[in-house]
Design a protein around this nucleic acid. Structure first.
Lengths: 188, 188
DNA sequence: TCGTCCATGTAACGCGTTACATGATTTG
DNA sequence: CAAATCATGTAACGCGTTACATGGACGA
């Protein structure tokens, strides 16, 4: 039982992307810059040190491309240890604390789960998310309804916007589940 | 024209709360811990240093309560400079970059705007938010529709969850506007 | 008086931010 | 050949995190 090294969310994002495709730091930067990937920073001062840490931890390995007439660049690939770190992280149970901290880390895990652990794990994750989300939304809603009168309007509305966001997320889990079930039944 | 000192989001949160009510560090901590206030940290290692910075910047002033038979505590109140910092920050224009970075900072501003600048400013902010949000949601939606086929299912769904969140937020702006207009017409 | 809150702090640490630095290689 | 872009880094800095420290007040 090797103890899990500390990896930041950015680290896991890099691990997942590198799992999808061996990449250079620059490519990863562009990905973050162009595709609004959960709003990770595209700054070299974040990515290169993060890659350095992952490499020092033995989770990825980079080698400078020997390509002829190419700009020198270091392509990073996942090591066995890196893959197992990903596999340990992806299915960690979803807690209410995770939910309150924001969708970001949960959705990052969701995005990588299918490719690394398979669609069954994705479905499992969606179900877990529903189980945590449903009572939380209900509680927030109750709180809002019973306290709406005694709160300043702005405060009530700010809270309401959060509740609506969670409701939309909850609805999404249903949609996502049917999409995965459709896929399992073979119609792609 | 005094230059605006650097204030973190946590700093603004504290400023806004102290504006509402002169408070001690401990009270502010409890607020964060209990009311899921945008998920700010309730840890003393965040709040006390932040209060210290604000005090050193002359934005708040704390005095130890002379209360008889009470536990010693330092109550912080806003200074004139603090109030003017808040007033400068609240109405800064909403950009797409703000939106992509997350609702947190925008909703924090919204929550304080009514009390500090009045309901007209809140309405103004909601209109601005709509103006930025509407085309952004439309673009995301277009992108999703045109690329849905060529993306991995998880990726498409992760993006879709983001889009749904923004859509819910946009709908909320409409609701919030009517609430404020109702209030202006006098029926509370 | 003994534990449990109340209340305020401090120290080490990690990581992201901003800004700067450096070259090589296409493109015009 | 000059300018833009590719590609990788480094340094200073601020702030939040976790964990630890301290001490007074209140209840049993």
């Amino acid at each position: 039982m090797h103890r899990q090294p500390d990896i930041s969310l950015l680290g896991y994002a890099l691990l997942g992307l590198i799992h999808q495709k061996t990449s250079s730091g620059y490519e990863l930067r562009k990905l973050f810059a162009e595709t609004a990937m959960g709003s990770f920073s595209d700054s070299p001062g974040a990515i290169y040190p993060a890659l350095g840490r992952l490499e020092r931890q033995g989770l990825i390995r980079g080698k400078v491309e020997p390509g002829a007439g190419m700009r020198r660049r270091k392509m990073f690939g996942l090591t066995a240890a890196g893959l197992s770190s990903l596999k340990q992280w992806l299915p960690t149970p979803i807690t209410r604390a995770d939910i309150m901290r924001g969708q970001q880390s949960i959705m990052l895990r969701f995005a990588f789960t299918e490719a690394v652990l398979g669609p069954r794990a994705s479905l499992q994750m969606l179900k877990e998310l529903q189980r945590e989300l449903r009572p939380y939304v209900a509680e927030l809603d109750d709180y809002l309804k019973s306290h709406a009168g005694q709160m300043p309007l702005s405060g009530m509305l700010a809270l309401d916007s959060g509740v609506r966001g969670y409701q939309a997320w909850l609805q999404w889990t249903g949609y996502a589940k049917t999409k995965f079930e459709q896929k399992k039944r073979g119609n792609r």
